[in-house]
């Protein structure tokens, strides 16, 4: 039964743009945060609803002061504070791990958005520019330097990592990484007017050999 439910749940997670079907460390961390929070939320929701339902039982009159201490101080203050502190620490630590940090094997690429197209550039290949498709090596951290030349956009490859905005005049860095070679869907995730619906890009993750070839020849 448990196995079946889990299998069904996992099957429902799949999708080219699914955040709960992670294909890289950042997306995996965040998906894990989601499942932890979901379980916690369901438990808290059940508790609160049970308290609401139990209020309809007939019962003896209560002592107002003690009652107030229980409901306001213990349940209203102490309970959320404990839960939130734990969650905050957990989220903060995870967020720190996702930040772009210096490292020997970090690959640097640029992403420049303009309405309905992304142009990608590569620190390793001077002068190379690819439109709509970003090439990265699989299994290595990639820092994407993101900006925009017209309105605000957002760089989002859901199976690899979270999103960050492309803002005119600013450059934001997002760390992405793909576990395995493959093709990953990306979307611009900030409303940009007509054309927003299919404002998409793809991330192609290469195995080491194919990445070497790409860097040398500039073609995949």
């Amino acid at each position: 039964m448990v196995v079946l439910t889990t299998a069904l749940a996992l099957a429902g997670c799949e999708g080219a743009l699914s955040t709960v079907d992670p294909a890289g460390p950042a997306a995996r961390t965040i998906a894990q945060i989601w499942w932890v929070m979901l379980m916690g939320a369901v438990a808290i929701f059940a508790l609160v609803m049970a308290l609401v339902a139990l209020a309809f039982r007939a019962r003896a009159p209560v002592d107002e002061t003690r009652h107030e201490r229980l409901w306001v101080v213990k349940l209203g203050i102490a309970f959320p504070v404990v839960v939130l502190l734990a969650l905050l620490a957990y989220g903060l630590a995870a967020g720190e791990r996702l930040l772009p940090r210096q490292g020997a094997d970090v690959v640097r690429v640029g992403a420049e958005a303009r309405r309905s197209a992304w142009a990608f550039s590569y620190a390793d290949v001077a002068g190379l520019r690819t439109d709509h498709v970003l090439h990265i090596p699989a299994g290595r951290p990639v820092d994407v330097a993101i900006t925009s030349t017209d309105v605000i956009h957002s760089f989002w490859a859901p199976r690899l990592a979270g999103k960050i905005d492309a803002i005119p005049g600013h450059v934001n860095i997002l760390r992405i990484e793909a576990d395995a070679p493959g093709v990953y869907a990306g979307r611009s995730a900030e409303f940009s007017g007509v054309g927003y619906d299919d404002f998409a890009f793809t991330v192609v993750a290469h195995d080491p050999a194919s990445w070497e070839r790409f860097i040398r020849s500039g073609t995949p």
């Binding site: 929070m37 957990y90 990592a161 979270g162």
Partner: peptide, 29 residues
């Protein structure tokens, strides 16, 4: 009662999106 049921869920998902990494995925979806 409709308020209790609905608002508690909204509050819990609110706490979720206040967690920065999760918001990087959930934002604008």
């Amino acid at each position: 009662l409709g308020f209790f049921f609905t608002f508690v869920i909204g509050g819990l998902t609110g706490v979720m999106v206040a967690v920065v990494p999760f918001d990087w995925q959930a934002h604008d979806t």
